[in-house]
Design a protein around this nucleic acid. Sequence first.
DNA 1: CGGTATCCTAGGGGATACTG
DNA 2: CAGTATCCCCTAGGATACCG
Lengths: 108, 108
Amino acid sequence: MPVRLNECPVELVLSMLSGRWKIPIYRYLYKNNKPVRYSGLLQHLPAISKKMLTEQLRELEHDGIINRTSYPEPRPKVEYMLTPSGRSMIVFLDKISEWGEKYILSDK
Amino acid sequence: MPVRLNECPVELVLSMLSGRWKIPIYRYLYKNNKPVRYSGLLQHLPAISKKMLTEQLRELEHDGIINRTSYPEPRPKVEYMLTPSGRSMIVFLDKISEWGEKYILSDK
DNA sequence: CGGTATCCTAGGGGATACTG
DNA sequence: CAGTATCCCCTAGGATACCG
């Protein structure tokens, strides 16, 4: 995604998280807090297809939220983990979660 | 939107803000901090169509973020403003903005 | 194992015209 | 003034099959 400097930062950040599987992927990487394999993600997100997984991972990587490390030999292996920048999103994600819980509890 | 209790609160909240015009509308209502007319929104969001404006307003209203007050006479008038709950979203929106600024400045 | 390549569909989003 | 009503397009997202 080309960073559009004229744009509202909020919209920019939200666009980085928009995608059916971004948050579930983020959560899994966050709680593991170490490199996680492609196959690991695939198993923990049972409803996702390989195409979608790859697509969402590529976008997260492009936006600097995760990084990807490939080990070709002897048996192919690719690992993903949050970048420091990506990990630091927890600051506002926690606030969102907090607000959401309150919103849900207040019956709405 | 039927609140799906099983769902991650973060995903729920993000879904409430997903929509091309939700954030611009929110920002305008937030900074005005008083009832704003439909026509006022239309003028301040020049690229939006009436259809989209109505649609986004309906969704925000349904999610309890804004409320709508109609004054039919003598000349029809409809005003929108943030609910207390909606206004309280600023807590995490500010955090997002802050993170976004840092992200943009750090050159990415 | 970690992907592409194809194909398909629902619905988000836009343009424009009409209405109580 | 504050909306509906139509029509249309594009892309996010899914199913499935194949590949190095």
